[in-house]
Design a protein around this nucleic acid. Structure first.
Lengths: 114, 114
DNA sequence: TCCTCCCATCGACGGTTGTCTATACATACT
DNA sequence: AGTATGTATAGACAACCGTCGATGGGAGGA
């Protein structure tokens, strides 16, 4: 499971055919929560920048410039992504390094196309 | 704003590795637009209900009861899904039949996990 | 110790969204 | 023509969201 500081609120995401049987309300809410995190242009760009960045990780200072937003705004978006279980945060010295959670995007995609 | 019905505003969705190279702003906006349509519990349930319904299609009157919302609200959500290119709408007599766009969810999933 | 740098949180603001009621439109049936 | 039924649209409202500036807090370096 995920073992970052705060337990991500992301649900299991598993085993939802979506196209085979109607989703229950809790299932739909859980899936929508993760999708909401990704359904924003800035957060999509942050995900791709972090993934493509050297070493597969990036600190906030690496991200503010590419997305042309203020540091608090970037921090806010990163927090949303961490809460959704898509990113992990690791503090090293003064810097906070963000990294893609392995398989998270694959699981999300799998929940969509069944 | 966004165009009228039957003219999906959904972009190509194609060829975005997402994890390999940073997304451009227009790419991210296009993808986010489709994801926003799916990032809602009610719309997720509507998608799954339509897909699982007999014949792969359903009219509005089939949908209001399962999601426990008023008819205008359901109509609104269906319009969002049609605009995103995920559903098609076909009028037959008094009824409007909604159906999943073939491959739309698969393409969306593909845009996520690269 | 003091200062600088990196980052998170707070409070506020305008814009968007999900839902409702009321209404208009269109198609069938009598 | 008139009526009933299935949908879409309009308008309104509360809640949420993305963004900012200001502030606080921790980690290093002089």
């Amino acid at each position: 499971m995920w073992k970052t500081r705060n337990m991500p609120t992301a649900p299991a995401l598993c085993c939802s055919p979506l196209t085979k049987a109607p989703l229950s309300l809790p299932e739909a809410e859980g899936l929508a929560h993760v999708l909401k995190a990704v359904a924003d242009p800035t957060r999509l760009r942050l995900l791709s920048i972090v993934a493509a960045h050297q070493g597969g990780e990036a600190c906030v200072c690496d991200l503010t410039d590419p997305v042309a937003l203020t540091q608090p705004t970037v921090s806010h978006h990163l927090r949303v992504l961490v809460d959704a279980g898509l990113l992990t945060r690791e503090q090293r010295g003064k810097w906070a390094y963000y990294r893609l959670v392995d398989g998270a995007l694959r699981d999300l995609a799998g929940a969509l196309n069944g």
